[in-house]
Structures are given as C-alpha cells and as structure tokens.
Design a protein around this nucleic acid. Structure first.
Lengths: 97, 97
DNA sequence: TTGATAGGCAAGTCGCTACTTGCCTATGGT
DNA sequence: ACCATAGGCAAGTAGCGACTTGCCTATCAA
C-alpha cells in the first residue's frame, strides 16, 4: 500500500539504491553494494543493503527474480506514480508553463 | 532540500495534515487539530500537530502567515512535483542524498 | 569433494523521532 | 483591567528503524 512506499522513500540509502537501479536495472545485491560504495561513497554493509532491498520490495518499488545463485533486482515505478497525485489536486497545475 | 521533503512525507499524521490542507487551505493549528480528531479519527495533541507543521514548513510543503493571534497555514505543492520525477525519467538522477 | 561465491536469518545495539508534560507569551473580547 | 483563546518553547520519555554481528544455506567452479 501507499503507506509502505512513503516509508521506503524516507531513507537516503534506499533512494540511492533506486537511483542505481534507475541507471542500470537488474543488478544483484553485491553489484548494488559495490556501486554504492564506489560511485556514491556510501559504506553500507551487505546486510544493510539486503534489508533495504527487502523494504523496497515489500513496498512494491523493487521486484526480484532468482536465477541460480544470483538474485536480480528490477525497479518498479508504478507505486511512485500514484502517491504524489494525492496532493496535486486538479487546481493550479503550474508545473509546465 | 529534497531530503526534508521525504522525511516530512514519512509520517502518516503529516500526510493527513496535507490531506486536510488540500481540502481546505489556510487553516489554523486548532482547526487542523479539530478536523484531524473528528474527520480522520486521530487523537493528536496540539503540540504534536504543531511540531508536525514545523516539519512540513521546514520542508517547504507548508507556509504560514500570522494575522493577529491566528496563524494560518497554506499548502505548497512545488516540492512534491520535483521529487518523484527523479525515478520516472530515464535521465541521470540529481545528485541529492 | 572442496572451496569460494551469493545470499538469508535472527538477535542485539544505538540513534532518531514522535509524543508528552509543564510552563510561558501574546492577542482579543467583555 | 480581567481572562479565555491561540500559540510557542524546552526537557524528558518511549518506541521504531537502521545497522551490526554471527552463523547458516545454496550454488557453481576447480
């Protein structure tokens, strides 16, 4: 539900994970760990990232597929498209001039 | 910055306050308290709602104007329109934590 | 089979945050 | 002048959430 989406987005590391998956979909846990530390400079442990991925997955923002000993993670943007329109009521759409 | 917007949206009571201001803009603290308890069934104290409004204001989602002994609160949706497009576009994401 | 890789599970620690409690200031009605 | 209303400030408490620690399972390559 939407409740979980907001909670999932509340953490900066999880948002970085979404950034990473936006840039390159279908990464494994270790790939995400490596790219978080090298590119974003975050020193997150494997378990920490694993728990973040679990939160993102239970929020519907990430789906995972197992293949052998690898587990690939894919981004799902559908939950994002629904949550913000809640407060962007029909009045005054000043987003595009 | 965007960081504060996500943190502000992480709390369900704050989201209810945004709902309330969406429905009727320019409410005072006591009005928001009253409508939260009656319409939404939340038993939030005055101080709790006051602190929530401070968080929303520092995130740029609410602005307040003083008038006599009243303080009116208005919704600002501009910060909302910026945050989610971060993952909806195929472009490179913003460099924000 | 052995060892290395990829990941999972569970309990525990620690910091942040939502909420309370108590007291304070200021404005306005009468 | 009085007092009720509208709101602010600050310290303290409780619980949730992020992260660690330690050990476990499963898969593949040699």
């Amino acid at each position: 539900m939407a409740e979980d989406v907001f909670k999932a987005l509340a953490d900066p590391t999880r948002r970085k994970i979404l950034d990473e998956l936006t840039e390159r979909n279908g990464q494994t846990l270790f790939e995400i760990c490596a790219r978080l530390t090298t590119k974003h400079g975050l020193g997150s442990s494997r378990q920490a990232v694993s728990q973040h991925l679990a939160v993102l997955e239970s929020a519907g923002l990430v789906v995972s597929r197992r293949q052998g000993r690898y587990k690939f993670h894919d981004l799902r943007t559908e939950p994002l498209e629904r949550i913000v329109t809640r407060w962007l009521k029909p009045d005054a759409p000043e987003s595009t001039p």
